[in-house]
Each structure stands twice: as structure tokens, then as C-alpha cells.
Amino acid sequence: MLNNLADFAKKASMAQDRRQFLVRAGCLLFTVGGARLWLTPAEARSRGADLQVLDAAQTRTLEAFGEILVPGAAEAGLAHFVDSQLAADPNDCLLVTRYFNIEPPYLPFYAGTLAGLESLSAERHQRAFAALGEAEAVALVRELGAGTPRGWSGPPAELGYLVIRSDAVDVVYGTVEGFRRLGVPYMPHILPPRPW
């Protein structure tokens, strides 16, 4: 049986999938000041790496939304994580959208949810979501999670809440660092590419 297993692994690797996957031991590929660097999303954020898909306004809203959903998400690199995955081949994408029968490319879904949140914030408070006080932001997000808020336009608000909440949970708790935050052992068989 052991021989079979080894043989199988060898044959499988000879027939390797041709698709290039943008990951190398630990990191994802980001561009900083014109140079391509392998960084973790948290590092990418702190070094101001370029985003490939999300624009500056979407990034601001995503980070603010993520921070209200799961404190620590912005610093953990939520925007760089989502951005890098939106840029990936759908078959290699690590986003939870894969479960939800959402047709790739996933950008319109994210863009629509973030734009919907901004319109809601403008309508209710005449300010950008990122400029809201904590209590105001929490109240708005609560409406999203409970269903479609009055005046909402965009993809189903509840789904947007679930997906982006899940992304934020992924970066804050779904990593080796995240397990440490919760005081539980990670116990990997194969350590995933850092930091996921």
C-alpha cells in the first residue's frame, strides 16, 4: 500500500495542473513601489502594497465595514486578502463566495455591497461609512445582517453581510495567528502558506 501511495503521488505530480498559482511558501504576490514582493496580506497592508482590483474608496469602505464586523480585520489585511483573491483565477480563489452560488468574477458582488453600504450611510447620516461613529456604524451593520434595510440597493444585503463577515473572520481567526488569539492549538499537518 505504501508503495502504491508513493507511486500515485509521483504520477500525480508528473501530470501537474498547468495553471500557475500565485502563492509561494507562505505569501501572496503583491506590488510595492513597482517591485513584486511575496508578502502576507497584513505585511502588504502595512507596507502600502498596491491593490489590483479594489479602488481606494472601496478599500476604505471594506476595511471600515470589516472592522465593525470583526475588530482587528483591517490590520489583519482584510482588504489585501479580498483584493488578491478577487484577482486570482476563480478555481484558485480562497473566498467563501464559492459556497454561495455567486457567479465569478466576484468583484461586482463586493463592489455592489460596498456601494450599497455607502449609499445607506449617506442617506441616513450624510457621511461616508468610514466616518461614522462606532454606534452609528454598528446600528447600520445590524440592519444589513437582519435583512434588506429600507432603501437598500445592491446584492442581497444579508448575503453581503455574511460574506464579508466571513472574510473578516477568516483573516482574524482562521489563521495560525488567529488560533493563537483564541488560545487554541493550530496543530497543522501541513502548515498553510502564511498567514492562512
Binding site: L5, L191, P192
Partner: peptide
């Protein structure tokens, strides 16, 4: 789908998503 080897199975719920279909080819 692609070739998968046992050593492709990273211990991570995020990486596990690669094992799923990406394109919803079933309308519910």
C-alpha cells in the same frame, strides 16, 4: 478538475475552498 495529491491538503479552512467548484453550474 485538477490533479490533487495528499500533500496538497493544507491544514486550513481557507485553502480547503479550492477543493470546491468555483463556477456555480447548478441553478437552484
Amino acid at each position: 478538475g485538477p490533479v490533487r495529491r495528499l500533500e496538497d491538503f493544507y491544514s486550513s479552512q481557507l485553502w480547503a475552498r479550492r477543493l470546491k467548484w468555483a463556477v456555480p453550474h447548478v441553478a437552484e
